[in-house]
Simulated assay, not measured.
Amino acid sequence: MSGICDGRVVIVTGAGRGIGREHALEFARQGAKVVVNDLGAGPGGAGRSGGPALEVVEEIHALGGQAVANSDDIADWDGAARLVKMALSAFGRLDVLVNNAGFVRDRMLVSMTEQEWDDVIRVHLKGHFLPLRHAAAHWRERSKSGGPVDARVINTSSGAGLFGSVGQGNYAAAKAGIAALTLVAAAELGRYGVTVNAIAPAARTRMTEEVFAEMMARPESGFDAMDPANVAPLVVWLGSVESSHVTGRMFEVEGGRIALADGWRHGPRADRDARWEPAEIGDAVTKLLADAPGPEPVYGV
């Protein structure tokens, strides 16, 4: 098998099902050697099984590709370290890290428990940081020793993290943190030959099957816009050598649509070159709001 990722070694977390599975399969079709990571947990994060990762590995082998399965917990320091080491021991190198694993525990803020908050923040935000941390340490060491590095990190944010989503305060906060982490990592790791980008995908998965219930059936046109396979081509391209000029960017992807999402920017300002009096603030803010575009609506409002 050969393609735009021929010979590259890729880790995909949460690759046993849904979007992650499609990433792993497409990387393999494009010539990559894949470490398929999946804890095998249920939709709410409970349970553990190596079955889903092994099934994807078998699919890749059937395609004629190379892959190994990993069931480490990517939100655990040692587990994430073992994941990176597995790529190095199995294939001798690491070129691409796709952080994809996650689950949801949706709840309105007034009903959310501390555990529901902690669990979602842990698997999404910490589960992005730790594999990135260990992979980055490897690439920095390789770069400082004079070895060639042309590495990629693709993180997974969400429209909920960019614009907010009613009933998903924990998930939205984690995904917003991933967006910011992507910017920091891109700025810090570029000197070592690493690019870092993120996607905000919309597709039908176990996490979104209720949201997209009306779109489950394939439309008459024959194109299923909610098929998670639609997300993989962009991610695979971002993992290829062709994307070396792209870093620190957020891509929205849904069906056949790819779009750039711009984050917070400096907007209109009022500067009186002196300390404001509280009574003066109202008029200043009113003018600032009039001069600025309105915010994107929160999902669910």
Results as ranks from 00 to 15, higher is better:
114 E>T: 13
114 E>A: 14
116 E>V: 00
116 E>K: 04
116 E>M: 13
117 W>V: 02
122 R>F: 11
122 R>K: 15
123 V>K: 01
123 V>L: 06
124 H>D: 11
124 H>A: 10
125 L>Y: 09
125 L>D: 04
125 L>R: 05
125 L>H: 00
128 H>G: 04
132 L>K: 07
132 L>Q: 10
132 L>C: 15
134 H>Y: 13
135 A>R: 07
136 A>C: 01
136 A>P: 03
137 A>N: 09
137 A>P: 00
138 H>V: 12
140 R>M: 13
140 R>W: 06
140 R>H: 04
141 E>M: 02
141 E>I: 06
144 K>W: 03
146 G>R: 08
148 P>Q: 12
153 V>T: 02
154 I>D: 10
154 I>G: 02
157 S>L: 10
157 S>Q: 05
159 G>W: 07
165 S>N: 15
165 S>C: 11
166 V>Q: 06
167 G>L: 01
169 G>M: 04
170 N>M: 10
171 Y>F: 07
171 Y>C: 10
172 A>T: 00
175 K>Q: 09
176 A>I: 07
178 I>L: 03
180 A>C: 10
182 T>Y: 00
182 T>F: 07
183 L>T: 12
186 A>M: 06
187 A>N: 12
187 A>H: 09
188 E>Q: 13
190 G>N: 11
193 G>E: 02
194 V>A: 12
196 V>N: 05
199 I>T: 01
200 A>Y: 00
201 P>K: 03
203 A>I: 07
203 A>K: 02
204 R>Y: 13
206 R>T: 01
206 R>F: 07
206 R>G: 15
207 M>N: 09
208 T>R: 11
210 E>S: 11
215 M>W: 13
215 M>Y: 15
217 A>R: 14
218 R>L: 14
218 R>S: 10
219 P>K: 08
220 E>S: 14
222 G>L: 03
222 G>V: 10
